[in-house]
Amino acid sequence: MNDKTPNRCRIVLISPSGVNADDFASMFRAAIAGGDIASIMLPSHGMDEASYQAFAEKIVPIAQEAGIAAIIVDDTRIAGRVKADGIHIDSGKAALAEAIESFQEKMAVGAGGVKTRDDALELGEERPDYVFFGKFGYDNQPEAHQRNLSLGGWWAEMVEIPGIVMAGSDLASIETVAATGTDFVAISAAVFGAGVDPNAAIARANAILEASAPRFETVA
C-alpha cells in the first residue's frame, strides 16, 4: 500500500470463488504489491464453515500485515476467531442490527443486499460503517451494473455513510464507478480473473483513479 491514503475513491477487493487459499494468497500478495488497496472482502462462496475459516486464517494476516482491512462475510463467529477487521452482513436488517449491537465496538460492520433506495435507507437507519451496492460474483460483464451505479451515486449525494459500488470485469469500469462520487470501488474479476496479472491490474486501477476520480473534501 501507499504510505499516504489517497483523497479519492479507493479499491476494495473481493476474493473470487473456486480458488484455494494458497493460490489466492499468491494472487493477493501480487495485488498488494501493485498499489493502494483499502480493504478485502472474503465471501464464503459456498465453502463449509471449516473450509471458510481455514481460508480466512490464511488471508486475513496477509491483509493486515499490509495495512488492508480484512472483512468476513455473514459469519460473526469466524470474524471473531480470525480477528478480522470487519464483518459484512448481506442477510437483512435484523442481522445487521444484531451485528452492530454486538460487534461494532470491536470491528467495522457493513451492509449489503441492497436492491432499492428503500433497502439502502432501511439499512442506513442502523448506522453501519458502509453500504455495499452490488452482489458478489456478479461482476461478469465489462461494465458496472447500471442499478449499482445509480444507487451508489444517489447514496453518495444524499447520505454520509460511506458507499462501496461494484465495478465490472473490465478495469475501465472503475472510472465510471468513481464518477458517481462513491467512497470505494469494489473489484474482483478485473483483478483476479483468468489470465489477469493482479499486480499490473492494481497498478492500472490506481492510475485510473488517480487520473479521473473526484477528490473528496477534507475536513479541517
Rank of each mutant, 00 (worst) to 15 (best):
A200P: 14
V185H: 03
D170H: 14
T180E: 07
L171N: 14
P198C: 05
V196W: 02
V177P: 01
S188M: 09
I187Y: 10
A172E: 14
A179Y: 00
A186M: 04
D170A: 14
A167K: 05
G168C: 10
V185T: 13
A189L: 08
A194C: 01
I187C: 12
F184I: 01
I174S: 11
G195R: 00
N199C: 14
A172T: 12
A172C: 08
A172S: 15
D197Q: 06
A179H: 08
A167L: 07
S169G: 08
V185P: 05
G195K: 00
S173E: 05
S188Q: 11
V191K: 06
F192M: 08
G193T: 00
D170V: 14
M166C: 09
D197H: 10
F192D: 06
T180W: 04
A179S: 13
L171H: 13
D170G: 11
T176L: 07
S169C: 08
N199Q: 13
A190Y: 02
V185K: 05
T182K: 02
A172F: 12
A178W: 01
T182V: 11
G195I: 00
T176W: 03
T176H: 07
A200H: 14
I187H: 07
G193Y: 04
V177I: 09
F192R: 08
D183K: 13
D183L: 05
V177G: 06
P198Y: 06
A167D: 00
I174W: 10
F192P: 03
F184R: 08
D170P: 10
G168A: 13
A167M: 12
G195W: 00
A167Q: 07
P198M: 10
S188D: 11
P198G: 10
T182E: 04
T180Y: 04
